[in-house]
């Protein structure tokens, strides 16, 4: 029996496709997420909008919270570590989480390097703003990618920008001839073998979800229409006026994203969405997406 193979790591992400992964802080929130139909939950210390508000250093969540969440639900439990924080990642693996998110939402621990993810049995998901960043993370062993978006803003524009960038860059590479691929690898700062793989398959080698700013069922449907495999929702659920209703409606809109009647029906009377932030009002240091290299 071989554990921790590329196929089982990437395979779990395949099983999550078409689903919604929800940020949760407590076991009670995890139960609400599972009841609504989440395919997995992401355990973290504070949801991104609170991290934004409180400031300070955001770290891996307390192991006891993760264990409580694991005990509360039967669906996969993911958890976040800081970029480059090998020790937090090792702790999360020891806690038997199902996926580790090496996340720009937490304060980076290493300003030059990400975790060597090949060294772990537990699979990793990482954020990306463009194809080069996605392929660098995959080159380091990430088994799943998500757009970074701009977490904790309730504003979907950055997630859209990042997904469009990835799609456009894949399209460009897929139309190149063999001789152009090395300079494309140089321009994107991406591993050459992965650039060649993208050129021949026309897609990323791993599952790609949307994250960062998804706050409504319509946002989820929008991201699905841009070709993502599924969505992460952070503050959008538990910072809304009605978490149960928002959670269920976002799940339903993700499945039926191409049927506007269904999205319309599930969007009715949900109450207040999370408070939103205009991206232009954020200073450079407040933009989480620029963390990671």
């Amino acid at each position: 029996m071989d554990t921790g193979t590329e196929r089982v790591k990437r395979g779990l992400a395949e099983m999550l496709k078409g689903g919604v992964i929800m940020d949760v802080v407590t076991a009670d929130e995890a139960r609400i997420a599972a009841e609504a139909g989440a395919v997995a939950v992401m355990a973290l210390e504070r949801v991104p909008s609170d991290i934004r508000k409180d400031g300070g250093v955001a770290r891996m969540t307390d192991p006891i919270r993760i264990e409580e969440i694991q005990a509360a639900v039967s669906i996969p439990v993911m958890a976040k570590c800081r970029i480059g924080h090998v020790a937090e990642a090792a702790i999360l693996q020891a806690l038997n989480v199902d996926y580790i998110d090496e996340s720009e939402v937490l304060t980076p621990a290493d300003d030059e390097h990400h975790v060597d993810k090949w060294a772990f049995t537990t699979p990793f998901v990482c954020g990306a703003r463009n194809l080069g960043e996605a392929l660098r993370r995959i080159g380091e062993g990430a088994a799943m990618i998500r757009t970074k978006g701009e977490a904790g803003t309730g504003n979907v524009v950055e997630a859209v920008r990042h997904m469009r960038a990835v799609t456009d860059e894949i399209r460009a590479i897929a139309s190149m001839d063999e001789a152009q691929l090395m300079s494309a690898a140089r321009d994107h700062g991406a591993p050459y073998d992965l650039v060649r793989e993208v050129a021949s398959t026309g897609k990323l080698p791993v599952v790609n979800f949307a994250a960062g700013g998804i706050a409504t069922p319509a946002d989820a449907a929008l991201m699905m229409s841009l070709g993502v495999d599924g969505v992460f929702v952070g503050s959008g659920i538990f910072k809304s006026s009605s978490p149960e209703a928002y959670a269920a409606a976002i799940v339903e809109a993700t499945t039926f994203w191409n049927e506007p009647e269904v999205v319309a029906k599930v969007s009715r009377g949900l109450g207040e969405a999370m408070p939103g932030i205009e991206i232009e009002t954020l200073s450079d240091s407040e933009r989480l997406a620029s963390r990671g290299w």
Binding site: M1, T3, T5, V8, G11, P76, V97, D98, T122
Partner: peptide, 14 residues
């Protein structure tokens, strides 16, 4: 029995 072989770290090929 769900997740009978364990969590993701116990996922395997055979």
């Amino acid at each position: 029995r769900r997740n009978a072989f364990g969590r993701q770290n116990e996922s395997f090929e055979a």
